[in-house]
């Protein structure tokens, strides 16, 4: 009996420790990002760092301004959402409201497959298909530019927007739609004027999730954006917050201001993402409460 109680106590403790792991992981990540990212920001000066428009990390008189990266990430995010939201939400409407069950059963796995494709594969397709196409269509010297990155990101955020919006649209109470139909509205009018507004907070959650993915994506955009630290322009070669970290990390010397500054960029990205996470949490919560 004694032994049994002892085992019970031990297992209780073991499961408690497992439960603590995700809290510990978030704490660990936060502490290390701040610890590694803050020194360079203080050394360079927060204003020069965040609002400086010139990034010359390897020049003899280096300059560390990351405004180009911040603006590129913001542009990339809004560009991808601008194109991805209509297509994604309409596809979700199709899947949840208009498609015959058999067609929906065929399209849904396709969307899941799109979500499962590794980002490097998107990058490869972008590099070989999209970049030359953009170059030809717009008569550019090189197709590696913000526009190509936005197009790749658009495809990558689609599955997020579609699956979250579809779940929200399915959760709209039948009575709402039936009432609208009973008042003489057609089905398509009902969907657009009743179902979509009723599923609003879920759809917004899907969009925010997509925004998080667009801001956080590194490898795919690294392969198509050209990687020059310009202020953003649709046809200019640009660097995102993520790719700024990834492209110099492999050769920056340990302990150098350059490497510290890369961690600072990581910290800025982290703050962005935490803000988006918080917004996502708020919208999901609001959807649940209703």
């Amino acid at each position: 009996m004694k032994l049994k109680q002892r085992i019970e106590q031990i297992m209780n403790l073991v499961f408690f420790v497992c439960g603590m792991v995700s809290i510990a992981a978030v704490a660990l990540i936060t502490v290390y990002m701040v610890w590694a990212g803050l020194p360079a920001i203080l050394k360079i000066g927060p204003v020069d760092f965040l609002l400086g428009t010139v990034w010359k990390s390897t020049a003899s008189e280096p300059e560390f301004g990351i405004l180009p990266f911040i603006m590129t990430s913001v542009w990339g995010m809004f560009g991808a959402l601008l194109l991805g939201v209509p297509v994604g939400v309409f596809t979700a409407v199709f899947l949840s409201k208009l498609a015959p069950p058999k067609v929906a059963a065929a399209v849904r796995p396709a969307v899941e497959l799109l979500a499962g494709i590794p980002s490097v594969v998107y990058g490869l397709i972008g590099m070989i298909v999209l970049v030359p196409a953009v170059m030809d269509i717009f008569g550019l010297k090189s197709g590696s530019c913000l526009l190509s990155a936005i197009l790749v990101l658009t495809i990558m955020v689609l599955p997020n927007i579609i699956s979250v919006s579809e779940t929200a649209l399915r959760a709209v109470p039948k009575e709402y739609e039936e009432a609208s139909l009973g008042l003489g509205a057609t089905w398509i009018e009902t969907v657009f004027k009743v179902s979509i507004p009723a599923a609003k907070s879920g759809i917004v959650a899907g969009i925010v999730l997509g925004a998080g993915r667009a801001v956080g994506e590194a490898m795919a955009v690294m392969m198509v954006a050209g990687n020059v630290a310009n202020m953003p322009g649709l046809f200019k070669s640009v660097r995102f917050l993520t790719t700024a970290v990834a492209s110099e990390m492999s050769y920056a010397a340990d302990g150098s201001l350059q490497k510290q500054a890369l961690f600072s960029i990581g910290l800025v990205l982290f703050v962005f993402i935490m803000f988006i996470n918080w917004a996502l949490h708020a919208f999901l919560k609001r959807g649940e409460d209703r």
Partner: peptide
């Protein structure tokens, strides 16, 4: 915190 972990991009995990 679990939700937060799911939202952190892989490049941050790399760092």
């Amino acid at each position: 915190t679990t939700e937060t972990l799911a939202g952190i991009p892989s490049i941050i995990y790399g760092l």
